[in-house]
């Protein structure tokens, strides 16, 4: 079960769900094209389709309700029940990341930090993320290249992101909101040990 959980990342889940949906759509298209060669009275045909539609409608409403109830409990937003841990301030600027321990409460353009930081493994980290100029987005990638979590770095606002690094190693920060000419080169690093 735990192996399945590890293999079934969010990306893999998204792929499987979308693939299943695509196969279903293709199957319907093929069925319609194949079945269209025969002719049936339009009222009979309509009646048959609408009978299936009735069942589909209730199945869909049920699925949507269940999925909403389950998925809306898994939000990435700050959780007051999470025990306080280390705080890190992150400031995005065209085109670099600045990180430093602690929360910074002065003017954001006075903030000094480095584009790398060392953090403990298995500890709750609270990232306080903002920007000195335009919108950026702090995307945290593991060393295999999987995007783990992200939040926007927005001028005039502070987004709080809570995250626990469960494996030691180097994690990379890439900018995920288009921020101008050097957007594709805006990277930082988090050493977790």
């Amino acid at each position: 079960m735990s192996i399945l959980f590890v293999l079934l990342t969010l990306q893999v889940s998204a792929a499987l769900i979308s693939l299943a949906g695509t196969i279903l759509v293709i199957a319907v298209v093929v069925f319609l094209m194949a079945s269209s060669s025969s002719e049936e009275d339009k009222y009979t045909a309509k009646h048959k389709v609408y009978k299936v539609r009735g069942r589909y409608f209730f199945a869909l409403v049920f699925c949507i309700t269940v999925l909403l109830i389950v998925s809306l409990r898994l939000l990435p937003y700050p959780n007051s029940q999470m025990p306080p841990g280390n705080t890190v301030t992150v400031v995005g600027a065209q085109w670099s990341w600045k990180l430093a321990p602690g929360e910074f409460n002065k003017k954001v353009n006075e903030f000094t930090g480095k584009n790398e930081i060392t953090l403990p493994v298995n500890a709750n980290i609270k990232f306080v993320v903002t920007s000195v100029d335009v919108n950026h987005s702090m995307g945290i990638y593991n060393s295999k290249g999987d995007l783990m979590i992200q939040t926007q770095a927005m001028p005039q606002y502070k987004n709080e992101l809570q995250f626990k690094f469960q494996q030691p190693g180097d994690y990379h920060i890439l900018c995920l909101e288009y921020c101008g000419l050097v957007h594709a080169n805006m990277a930082g690093i988090i050493h977790v040990q």
């Binding site: 969010l10 998204a14 999925l67 998925s71 898994l74 987005s137 909101e177």
Partner: peptide, 12 residues
Amino acid sequence: STIAINKVLHNT
């Protein structure tokens, strides 16, 4: 559009 999944797909 699922928030729990969007955190790893948004802007990819």
